[in-house]
Computed example of a mutant assay.
Amino acid sequence: MSQNGDAIDLDKSLGYLLKEASSALRAAMEEVLRPLRMTITHYSCLELLAQRPGLSNSELARGAFVTRQSMNVLLRTLERDGYVTRPAEAPVGKVLPARLTPRGRESLEKASKAVRSVEVRMLAGLTEAERSDALRILRSMIHSLRDDNDGA
């Protein structure tokens, strides 16, 4: 119900539709990553490390939208399985910067192709101009919500 007591038309609620799109995207990504024995968080972690080697557990957790504790468990598993490497001791402070191994890069390459196929499928019905508009509009929404949140 809206504030004035009227029912919200979910088909016209941008927030609801964004959540539905997010859920559909997540399900499609999980589907293509599952045969690679990878989760979305696992993929996100590898992608972040490929783009910014040496990120800390906290930075990876923020980038993958998970808790530090969850990321720490994942990093230990990825390290044990040979996908990432971290120094035995922190070079500075307590931070153990993580880096991809060759095995991690190879795994990421396969996962990136799979995830890209989902994005291509998701955007198939849009023109190039509509894709550009969608990116611009989504960035604007994120910016507006973060600005409002910062001022609270």
Rank of each mutant, 00 (worst) to 15 (best):
L36A: 04
E59T: 01
G93N: 05
A98H: 00
M71N: 03
M29I: 15
K12E: 14
N72Y: 05
D147F: 15
G151Y: 12
E130Q: 15
Q51E: 07
Y43L: 07
S58H: 12
K94M: 08
E109W: 07
L10K: 07
S22K: 04
P91N: 07
G5N: 05
I40M: 04
T39M: 05
I137M: 14
Y16S: 01
R99H: 14
R62G: 07
R26G: 02
K19A: 10
H143F: 14
L10M: 07
A114Q: 01
S132D: 07
E30V: 00
R76Y: 05
L108M: 01
L96F: 10
A114G: 10
A88G: 12
A114W: 02
P97A: 00
A124V: 01
L145Q: 13
E59C: 05
E31N: 08
M38S: 12
F65V: 02
A28P: 00
L145N: 10
G54R: 03
M71Y: 02
V32I: 11
L126V: 09
F65Y: 08
A61D: 04
L33G: 00
P97Q: 01
L60V: 08
D9Y: 10
P102W: 05
E130V: 05
V32W: 02
M29G: 07
L49P: 01
L33V: 05
R131H: 06
S58K: 15
A28T: 00
N57R: 11
R80A: 14
L14K: 09
P97H: 02
A64K: 01
L14A: 07
E119A: 15
A111S: 11
R80P: 03
N57T: 13
S58Q: 15
L18P: 00
L17Q: 14
R52H: 14
K12H: 15
R80D: 09
V73M: 10
E30Y: 00
P102Q: 04
V84M: 07
N149P: 03
N72P: 02
P102C: 02
